[in-house]
Simulated assay, not measured.
Amino acid sequence: MLRLPDAFLDQLQAEDTPHGDLTTIALAIGERPGRMRFSARAPQVVCCVEEAVRLIERAGAQVSAYCRSGDFLPSGALILEATGPAEALLLSWKVAQTLIEATSGISTAVRHLVEAAERGGGAVVACTRKTFPGAKAASLKAVYAGGGVPHRLGLSDSLLVFPEHRVFLGADTADALRHLKAACPEKKVVAEVINVDEALQMARIGIDVLQLEKFPPEAVAETVRALSDLPSPPVLAAAGGVNAGNAEAYVRAGAKILVSSSPYWAKPADVSVKITADGPGHAGHAIPS
């Protein structure tokens, strides 16, 4: 599982508490011992448990984790428990909670896509590079936790020829794409197409993967039929508007890869936090999400 660097966690903490926790300092309660428990308020595929543990530990508390990123948790399941001074618990509480909630929302949405694809016969769920700016590492960890893979990490790692590239090629498109394959023999060439005719044209050139942009499932099936006479037809990736509601239909139509950005905008998961002061006469307080 991807490990987010401590520098990233320090940045998250610094955004929330650049000069300490003024309320805790002014109340003079920082040294009082306490306990903090994170639990799943609703079923979810949890993510960034390891990072939440490190956030809290780096604030000065001791933490025990009861699950790992990628685990499915039923409602009420304990995620982690921390003990230490109030200043450490209160400093790290909201940053750790928000990180788990945001990434677990993504990983849960990815898992729903994976399950829908499995109902259709099975396909790879690949999430795009359209993450929220600055959140790529955490988003990718959530994709892995949900059972998906990155579609592309960025422009530097893969070959994807868009129609916007091809407008600069003109009549030389076929030769240019064959040259591209020869220039980067260790990489597969992906081409995005917007209709069945383009798909057939790119397939005849020898493109490895066709990204079918905004094809409805019936158009994916039509593409499969159009390519069936080729000796080595390309792999078909459905893209644009793919979600858990239509993923099964896309797989049944013949898509082997489901390309989606939708998990990145999923509703955050719901994590309950309860903080108690250790010692007689102290009651816990459940923190609303």
Rank of each mutant, 00 (worst) to 15 (best):
Y144P: 01
Q211F: 07
K214Y: 14
V196G: 05
S156Y: 15
Y144K: 02
P133C: 01
V189Q: 02
F168D: 11
D197F: 08
L160N: 00
K187R: 14
S228F: 06
L236W: 03
F162I: 01
A239Y: 07
A221P: 04
R178Y: 02
V224I: 07
E186P: 08
V209D: 07
D172Q: 15
A226Q: 07
R111E: 07
V114T: 05
D208P: 06
G206S: 03
R178L: 10
P231D: 06
C184W: 15
P133I: 03
R152D: 08
V189E: 02
P234A: 06
E118S: 13
D175C: 10
V149D: 02
D172P: 09
R225W: 08
E192A: 09
H165E: 08
G120T: 08
C184L: 15
V125R: 00
L159H: 03
Q211Y: 02
N195P: 07
A142H: 00
A135K: 12
E118I: 10
L236R: 03
F215E: 06
A142G: 02
P133S: 04
V114Y: 00
A239D: 13
T223I: 06
M202S: 05
A239V: 11
P150N: 03
C127D: 00
P216F: 08
H112D: 13
R152Y: 06
I205N: 00
A219H: 12
G241K: 04
P163M: 08
V125G: 00
L200M: 11
A238N: 05
T128V: 10
E118Q: 15
H112L: 15
V161P: 00
H179I: 14
C184T: 14
P133N: 01
V209H: 03
K141G: 01
A176D: 11
I194K: 15
P216R: 09
E192Q: 10
E198W: 09
